[in-house]
Design a binder for these strands. Structure first.
Lengths: 110, 110
DNA sequence: GAGATTGCTTTGACAATCTAGGTATACCGT
DNA sequence: ACGGTATACCTAGATTGTCAAAGCAATCTC
């Protein structure tokens, strides 16, 4: 039984998470929803992908987190982009652009 | 010491190989050169990435191979896109387009 | 005949993602 | 009061694609 392909390409998840958080503080579950919504339902991030990614990203200092209670009265861990995270987002966007350009060049070859 | 990022995003290599071969039969080393050249030196595929990928792709029936001697008089294994491979290339290009579109949507969000 | 280039291959490591589970709280309909 | 659904967090295991680093051999140039 062949395994499925990844929904996302490896390496894009961090960028998407950072971008989501650049629009404002969010908890993990909210990041998933925001990505889904902003992409018009085209991209779905699994929880099992997100939480390890958030942890990884926090370790690198690109986001900070704190526990808080949100309007519904429930506890959640809120993540916020740090200055370094904002810088990292720019870097990743630039390298995404480079890759897209390179692939476009190859694809237009006849 | 943190490891380097991938030069390529995982999942794009197959598409690039298939695309290269869609322009004509090639041996492995030639695929690397073609990708490099078509992308204006922006993308470089390592041999240790390419050959396993070619093997994988051949197992799936997207390319066929044969040993032959090329103009320099040396032996090399030539790969050729199959009909299924051509179909696969279309599929992968379409899903690349979808991903680019989705990410573009997210990035334009304010 | 030494060194560079071309060409194929294998090995081991690694990082990112997915699947699949688990826990717990809040809300809603009945 | 109860069950189901959505929200919210987390972990474990497996898979996979890529890379780094080798090795081997043939050809060409100096």
């Amino acid at each position: 039984m062949p395994k499925n392909k990844a929904d996302l390409l490896q390496g894009t998840l961090d960028m998407l998470i950072l971008k989501s958080l650049s629009l404002g503080e969010l908890h993990g579950y909210g990041v998933i929803q925001r990505i889904r919504q902003l992409s018009d339902e085209m991209l779905h991030v699994e929880q099992g992908s997100l939480y390890p990614a958030l942890y990884r990203i926090e370790q690198k200092g690109w986001v900070s987190s704190r526990w808080d209670v949100h309007e519904t009265g429930r506890e959640a861990k809120f993540y916020k982009l740090t200055r370094a995270g904002r810088k990292q987002l720019e870097t990743e966007e630039a390298s995404w652009d480079r890759l897209c350009l390179a692939i476009a060049k190859i694809r237009q070859a006849t």
